[in-house]
């Protein structure tokens, strides 16, 4: 079982190579459509460095793929709260991304105090907190206090939304 997942893991790392190669092609294609003849000032035009970076990306993609195929693999990062003995918990990650997207969609519509509370509560829920009274209360308090500190205290623009005038 472990050898299968180990091999899958090794193969998924080829995705990094693929990503680098795609990035490289993207950078080169983008560089090729920059008109260099008339815009160029001095011997190095706006496309030169992108071409170099694009080529470097492709070369690194190939070298990394070779390294992975020879059995090399990157060591996943450790951390205080990280336990690598379990497989990745994708459900939590997807729920977090959903909470994050909710904030993006809501912030200009209903204002930061509400969208921020949704973000915090959603994230806490995704991470396994199930205090159905305490979690939302903390989320709202944090969001409103942050709004007041930033918008009122520090003069940094966070949208109030429909709560404009209430807070």
């Amino acid at each position: 079982m472990s050898s299968v997942s180990e091999r899958l893991r090794g193969r998924s790392e080829l995705g990094v190579s693929l990503l680098l190669a795609v990035l490289g092609v993207l950078v080169l294609v983008d560089a090729s459509r920059i008109p260099t003849d008339f815009t160029q000032r001095g011997p190095v035009g706006p496309a030169a460095v992108p071409v170099a970076v694009g080529v470097a990306l492709l070369v690194i993609a190939v070298l990394l793929a070779r390294d992975v195929l020879r059995g090399g693999h990157g060591e996943s990062e450790m951390g205080e709260d990280v336990d690598l003995s379990h497989p990745s918990d994708w459900r939590t990650v997807l729920l977090l991304i959903a909470a994050f997207l909710a904030n993006i969609v809501l912030i200009d519509r209903v204002g930061f105090p509400i969208s921020g509370a949704v973000l915090f509560w959603g994230s806490a829920y995704a991470l396994g907190s199930r205090h159905y009274l305490r979690d939302p209360l903390i989320a709202v308090a944090l969001s409103v206090v942050t709004y007041l500190i930033f918008a009122r205290g520090l003069g940094i623009g966070l949208p109030a939304g429909p709560l404009e005038g209430v807070l």
């Binding site: 921020g116 973000l119 915090f120 994230s123 396994g128 907190s129 944090l142 942050t146 966070l158």
Partner: peptide, 15 residues
């Protein structure tokens, strides 16, 4: 509590 900690990081990062 870790859920609050990491939810807080996402929250303040967005701010």
């Amino acid at each position: 509590p870790r859920p609050y900690l990491y939810a807080g990081i996402l929250f303040f990062a967005s701010v």
